[in-house]
Each structure stands twice: as C-alpha cells, then as structure tokens.
Design a protein around this nucleic acid. Structure first.
Length: 291
DNA sequence: ATCCAGGGCCGAC
DNA sequence: GTCGGCCATGGA
C-alpha cells in the first residue's frame, strides 16, 4: 500500500483485498450514495467523502493526508491484514470458500459508535433501502448542514444532544414509527450520562453488550451490530433472520435458537466471527440461501 | 394485494 | 423462561 497526496486528493495505490462497492453495499452501513460503479459519496464523521476505485487504487477526493490519517485510514480499516483474516477463516472453514471468493473485498468499517447505535435501532423490522431513507430524513431534520456535492446539500448525523431534545411526534414525522421512543431513550441516556460511549469503548464486550441492551429497543441483535460495526468487536456474530437462515441451511441443518447459533459461531469462527458473519450475510442474502 | 423486513417489547402462560 | 401478538411503514 502506497499513499500520496496530490491536488487536495489522497491516492492509495497497490491496495489489495479491498473493494469499495462490496464494503459499502454489504449491509454494514447506510449513509452512502453511488455516483457511478466503484465511485461513491460517503457521509461520516461530519464529512462528505468521495471515494473512487480503479483496480487496486482508490482516490479520496477533497481531503488531506492529515485528515486521511486522522479519520479515513481507520474508518476504512486499511491497516488490517485481510489476507491473513481470509486465510485463517478458510483454513478451518472450506464452507466459507464461495462466500469469501465472491465477497473478497469487504472491509469491516469502523463506524461512529453513536451513529451505529441509532442506525441499527432504526433498522429493526425494516428493509435496507428504507433504513437508508429514514436515516437521511433524521439527519436532514436534526443534524447540521456540512456541505454540498453536485448541488445537493448533506447533513451530519445528529448528536445525542440534538436528538435528545426531539419529540416523539418529530421523530415519527421522520418515519421512525414505533422506534421513536427507542431513539429518544438512547439519546436521553447518553445525554444524562447513564450511557457513556467513551467508557463503553474501554470495557469488555460482554459488559458493553449489557450496557447497550439497557437501552429500550436494543436487544441482542442490535447490540451485536453496534459492537461489531461501531466498536470494532470482531468476535461478535450479529444474528438476524438472514444469518439465522443461512447458518441453519449451511451448517446446523435444523431450526435453531439464537443461543445455538451464537455458540456455533463462537466455536467455528472464534475471534473472526464478525468477518465470517459479514461474508455470509452479504453472500447468503444475495443468493437467498435458505429462502 | 398480502407478506415481510438486518427485532424487541409486553403480557400470557 | 419462553412464546406469540403487536408495533409503523413501505418495498417486493
């Protein structure tokens, strides 16, 4: 991997095991817009990032080396060794071969913890396309304008303070439906200090899961999504209806409870369960495994 | 149209 | 402790 700054762009060359389309479209994040094939706008950390890929080279537009090192290097998980991750997973799991071969370029993004929490609260019982829409509406209603691209304005994801003063009606107007009180509860717990995001980053995964589940509307699945996508806990295995079907279909060969699936994943994939989950989810969903 | 969605709460048992 | 109905909303 070679990184240079040119004309207010940062260019990364010789980057292997990374594909921007797969990384964005695999279901882990919601605030991105496709400009063209392998050319996207990402809204994250209060910024608008245009990212374009050509073979093993990606260009980050309108940014600096300093900002790249401060934000995007970690967000895109560029320091991680995905060759090693995939080899390790494959060594013990030939069953993953097709999924990894197909979705070879996924990186698990290191997203903002707060945004991940609210995004996945919104995600419950919704299609991905609609999740994206609701998050966009909430950001427009409660976030700050952070800039524009091609004449379209973009807004930051609202802070806990910005959401804590929202009303139930206001949030429902954003099409959150029955999730509105959940969003309010999360926001108020964070503002009051009952939930301390900085502290959650430091405690063990099980302790963090317990903390997250104390928020109304957050159960095992949403907590695990926050742990994996927003806290870098790659040993977690978020189990939604799709992953449940896929694991039952590929491995367990019978209807299984959540506990059985979690136990299976821990035993089978160990500390890399989160990566395995993402390959399986994206591949399995695309191929409708178990449906 | 009817069903279901990257679930979780709540009240019956 | 666990099982089923229910929760808004819109896409398939």
């Amino acid at each position: 991997m070679k990184i240079v700054e040119e004309n207010n762009n940062v260019i990364i060359k010789d980057l292997e095991h990374f594909n921007i389309m797969q990384t964005l479209e695999c279901g882990q994040c919601f605030r991105f817009y496709k400009i063209e094939d392998l050319d996207y706008l990402i809204i994250a950390f209060g910024r608008i990032l245009r990212i374009q890929q050509e073979d093993n080279q990606i260009t980050l537009y309108n940014t600096t080396m300093n900002e790249f090192n401060k934000i995007w290097r970690e967000y895109l998980d560029l320091n991680n060794d995905y060759e090693c991750i995939k080899e390790t997973l494959l060594k013990n799991n030939q069953d993953l071969h097709q999924a990894i071969k197909s979705k070879w370029g996924i990186h698990i993004l290191k997203q903002d913890t707060w945004e991940t929490l609210i995004s996945f609260i919104i995600s419950q019982n919704k299609h991905i396309t609609h999740i994206k829409k609701v998050i966009e509406i909430i950001s427009l209603a409660y976030g700050d304008k952070i800039g524009s691209y091609n004449g379209i304005d973009y807004y930051s994801f609202p802070t806990p303070e910005q959401l804590a003063i929202a009303t139930d009606e206001g949030l429902r107007a954003c099409k959150t439906g029955f999730r509105a009180p959940y969003i309010l509860d999360a926001s108020q717990k964070v503002v009051k200090g009952e939930i301390d995001i900085q502290q959650i980053k430091k405690i063990t995964t099980d302790e963090a899961r317990k903390k997250l589940i104390s928020i109304k509307g957050v159960g095992n699945k949403i907590a695990d999504c926050v742990l994996l996508y927003g806290l870098g806990r790659t040993e977690t295995f978020p189990t939604d209806v799709w992953i449940k079907r896929i694991v039952e279909n590929m491995y367990l060969k019978q209807e299984s409870k959540l506990e059985a699936i979690q136990e299976f994943a821990a035993k089978q994939f160990g500390d890399y369960a989160g990566y395995a989950q993402q390959y399986l989810f994206y591949y399995g969903r695309e191929n409708r495994i178990g449906k």
